[in-house]
């Protein structure tokens, strides 16, 4: 739908030749023009700031330094967020009378309830599994030979886009009838073991779990990196003392390692939780939210831009915001406890 607005040049503040280009040279020209343009604005700000002198001028300098960032944030984030909240209260279209109908729809319509259930599954399973696997791996390879290489293997999926990860796993899950030669790894394994092949991305509720695996695959590297650094920062004296007291490996983990890295664990779980809440690319690339796999962030996109229900879309965006707050709150409370 956004393509239809292509020609919608309203009160254009940037003339058309600087908006779009078809040739490669034109595109790079635009890029350098933009950088030069912003550098000029940047220089202007610094020039303005340098005009103020003395102690009282210093206050103004500070204001001028933060002004560009604050203006962009107010106009581009705070104000739109307020508009979205208002829109979410004005019916499916976002233009009707004020009501809570979008929010009540979320908790009554079966297909939206399903979206909430899926999101809950994601937000519970991904942080737990990714953190668990990351922690185990971090402990296993700690000080092992080739640790850096072993880490890079797990860490690499973080550099890959979620779109790329979606394609990679879609191919792993690829379905062919049992009798035919298999090209998807997972179904090939099933067939080799004598089972029927599965449509992993179509059969609900299995498909949601198959998508969750992709996110775990991406996030485990993050958990592993942060937790590994935390494990390395446990003072050796504590470990040595525990060893002298005859503490064995499992107890060592339970009573020494785990309490020592508690703060890092909280950070990892909450960070992954927030990231998972907003997961969109994976669902969009692998199933498009069909076959009962939609989650809040994907449903936000579908309702806003495909099903022509911007009011409901806005309500889903606000729901994301509301759901982030308790996770951040938990993080802050735990950090306070730690301090």
């Amino acid at each position: 739908m956004t393509t239809t607005v292509l020609g919608g040049v309203g009160a254009g503040i940037i003339p058309e030749p600087f908006l779009r280009a078809e040739s490669v040279a034109g595109k790079f020209f635009l890029m350098f023009f933009a950088i030069a343009f912003f550098a000029a604005v940047f220089g202007l700000v610094l020039f303005l700031a340098s005009l103020f002198k003395g102690r009282s001028g210093e206050k103004w300098q500070g204001v001028i330094f933060v002004a560009p960032a604050l203006v962009l944030l107010s106009v581009g984030l705070v104000y739109p967020a307020i508009l979205t909240i208002i829109q979410s209260l004005r019916g499916r279209s976002g233009e009707d009378a004020f009501s809570l109908s979008n929010y009540s729809a979320m908790f009554t319509q079966p297909e939206l309830l399903l979206v909430l259930r899926n999101t809950a599954l994601w937000v519970i399973l991904v942080p737990l599994l990714a953190t668990g696997i990351g922690l185990i791996y971090a402990i296993l390879i700690d000080r092992a030979r080739g640790e850096a290489f072993a880490k890079a293997l797990i860490f690499l999926p973080m550099a890959i886009s979620m779109v790329g990860a979606g394609i990679i796993w879609k191919f792993v899950y690829q379905y062919k009838q049992t009798s035919r030669p298999q090209i998807g790894l997972l179904n090939a394994i099933l067939k080799a073991l004598g089972f029927d092949t599965q449509q992993f991305l179509i059969n609900a509720p299995l498909n949601t779990f198959m998508l969750i695996i992709v996110m775990v695959w991406i996030q485990a590297g993050f958990a592993m990196t942060v937790l590994s650094a935390a494990i390395k920062s446990i003072p050796d004296e504590i470990i040595e003392a525990a060893k002298l007291d005859g503490v064995q490996s499992f107890k060592m983990f339970r009573f020494i390692t785990l309490p020592s890295i508690r703060a890092a664990l909280v950070v990892v779980v909450t960070t992954i939780g927030i990231g998972t809440l907003k997961v969109f690319d994976i669902v969009r690339t692998m199933t498009g939210g069909q076959f009962d796999t939609s989650v809040v962030a994907n449903e936000f996109y579908s309702q806003s831009f495909r099903f022509n229900a911007p009011g409901l879309g806005a309500a889903l965006a606000v729901l994301l915001f509301i759901l982030v707050i308790p996770i951040v709150g938990y993080n802050i409370v735990q950090m306070r406890k730690e301090a």
Binding site: T2, G8, G12, I14, G76, P80, Q87, K278, A317
Partner: peptide, 24 residues
């Protein structure tokens, strides 16, 4: 902590209708 989703639709409206950027 503000998810960018809450800003997308109004921003799109700004770009298209007020600033004339459209898909640029």
């Amino acid at each position: 902590i503000v998810p960018l989703q809450v800003a997308l639709i109004p921003l799109l409206d700004f770009y298209v209708n007020r600033l004339g950027f459209g898909a640029s």
